[in-house]
């Protein structure tokens, strides 16, 4: 329990650091955001009124603490472009990204674990090489390439899956595969190497000597211990998946959080960009924390070591 508490408290400086980093970086831009907002037609009075309204006349430090205070209450500012609260826009986009990420993760984990186990069991024969070759290909393919190839084959040539998001679950299949493809490769490689390592341990020999079936040895004894590093890696992949979602959402026209971020850049909509990046980062940090806790629940040595 003490360990958990320590870990949770340990994330606070990192969280504050992230907010500070993003906050400062988005505010060193030359040119006032008020001018961006007003476009070409404005007068001095409007500028002053808006600057005051948006709190931009305050010192930067005051602005920062106001922003943190607001963020803690769920207020991430108002979009320059759409005049809507950023938090509302994120909440509207969130279900799409969650749906995409969950499906992609399921695909990656199932594919990765199964092919990793198959490869490890077939240590060094043709099947192993085939599976590992494909998984390295998965790791090396840019996400936009996977997306475009899938679109070309399944939507255009075969015409069996929709090309862009239309609200249905079916239209999420291609983006989810495209997003999960890379992670599936990494999970497969990790599962394989970890499983092979564990299979060399003495207690596996003992289990075999007891006369347990090969399947039982792998499933009950080896897999459980080899999954520790894999579980951690899966949680760490959350970060790269949320990065990848930016691209998948752009290719498949999914109105998710990544899409908000790309649009915010072309609209020069600073509050939206700031809000989406912060929101995503908080999710990543929470995911890492969860992975750590899961790890220590699964492996008591970590807790005792503290």
């Amino acid at each position: 329990m003490k360990y958990f508490l320590k870990r949770v408290i340990g994330t606070i400086p990192v969280l504050l650091g992230v907010v500070l980093l993003i906050f400062i970086m988005l505010r060193i831009i030359p040119g006032s955001p008020v001018l961006v907002m007003l476009g070409e037609h404005y007068d001095q009075e409007t500028i002053e009124r808006l600057t005051e309204l948006m709190g931009l006349d305050q010192p930067l430090l005051v602005q920062f603490f106001d922003y943190v205070k607001g963020a803690l209450m769920g207020d991430l500012g108002v979009s320059y472009r759409y005049q809507r609260p950023v938090a509302d826009m994120i909440m509207d986009a969130l279900p799409y990204t969650v749906k995409l990420a969950v499906m992609a993760a399921l695909f990656a984990w199932v594919m990765g674990l199964v092919s990793g186990i198959i490869a490890a069991v077939n240590n060094n024969n043709f099947i192993d090489r085939l599976f590992m070759g494909v998984s390295l290909l998965g790791v090396s393919m840019p996400i936009f390439m996977t997306s475009l190839v899938l679109q070309y084959i399944f939507s255009f040539k075969l015409g069996i899956l929709p090309m862009t998001e239309d609200g249905s679950m079916v239209s999420m299949i291609l983006p989810a595969i495209a997003l999960g493809w890379n992670s599936a490769g990494s999970v497969a490689r990790m599962t394989r190497s970890s499983l092979i390592e564990v299979m060399q341990a003495d207690y596996i020999d003992t289990a075999k000597a007891k006369g347990l079936l090969r399947g039982a040895v792998i499933m009950k004894h080896a897999l459980r211990n080899s999954l520790l590093p894999v579980v951690t890696m899966m949680a760490l992949q959350l970060s790269s998946m949320l990065s990848g979602a930016v691209i998948t959402e752009s290719v498949f026209a999914i109105p998710g959080i990544g899409r908000l971020a790309t649009e915010a850049i072309s609209n020069r909509d600073m509050p939206v960009l700031q809000g989406t990046v912060l929101f995503t980062t908080v999710i990543v940090i929470a995911g890492n924390l969860l992975a750590d806790m899961l790890y220590s629940v699964l492996d008591p040595r970590i807790r005792k070591g503290e």
Partner: peptide
């Protein structure tokens, strides 16, 4: 500081830099 950099998804961090 390294933790902060590693926490922000790399593509999004790069997007913020490009925006600025």
């Amino acid at each position: 500081i390294a933790d902060v950099m590693l926490s922000v998804p790399s593509l999004l961090l790069a997007m913020v830099v490009m925006y600025t």
